[in-house]
Amino acid sequence: MADFAIEMKNVSKELGRKKVLRDLSLAIPKGSVFGLLGKNGAGKTTLIKCALGLVRIQAGGITVLGDDPGNLHEDTKQKLGYVPQSDRIYPWLSVKQIINYTASFYSHWNDQLVHSLLNDWDLDSNDKVGLLSEGQAQMLMIILALGHEPQLLIFDEPVASLDPAARRQFLKTILKIVSDRECTVFFSTHITSDLERVADRVALLKDDKIDFCGELDVLKDEVKRLRIVAPVDISEELNISGLIFCERSHHEAIISVRGFKPEMKIAIEKQLKAEIEVEDLNLEEIFLELNR
């Protein structure tokens, strides 16, 4: 248990009549940068809210840093940082005031970090929060979540309204934090290129279940697109385990598979006397293939 920052076991969650999560299990190891992928409406936000105890779950068990999210201990809260997708915060306060306000809740607050981030992101600490743009407000929320140097950082679509420069800055900050100290980062996104850069583990949420969960590199090794050219007619006889998608004419086929191993290629080559080209897929392509 101590090895996981978040552990979800057989969690089910319904919103109204719709099942959003069904019997879902997920474990996020400590120290990892964990990316959660999924189509719009797949339930990423709900999963995160369940993990934080912001909503009640219908079945299953969750622990966050070894604590029950439905009833978090104050000490656990000191170690948590969360940035929601969008947030409404007191518009009449200035950036400086909202920082002081948030800081006052925590026993530890890194002023230096907060100031350098404000600098990096060109946020004026005297600006009123209500006048910030969507992106700036998101930056501010990120800064507020980093100030107390939490052990577990959870972001819901953190970069959705950030421009490319700010997005890069955000990733850099996250990487700096992970390499400086023990910290687990869990975030949902649909911008796969960001995930590829920073995440070491990913989970794919599809049809209220986790479709894949593990190391990003393993995912990339396992999901491949094969281009098969065979001397015989192969339009009927393709029996490959882990087939996701197949497109074929008489002698040629383009198939995507999961659970790919080099031996598999040799086996098919022998079986069909075919020539096979293995194509590496990047995360975006994998995402598209798996969501077919």
């Binding site: 940068v33 850099k172 990487l175 850069r197 920073v198 590199d217």
Partner: peptide, 17 residues
Amino acid sequence: VRQVAGELEINPMTVSK
């Protein structure tokens, strides 16, 4: 590892792997 990760802006775990 840290230098490479910092320079490339990638996860240090990847470099150490």
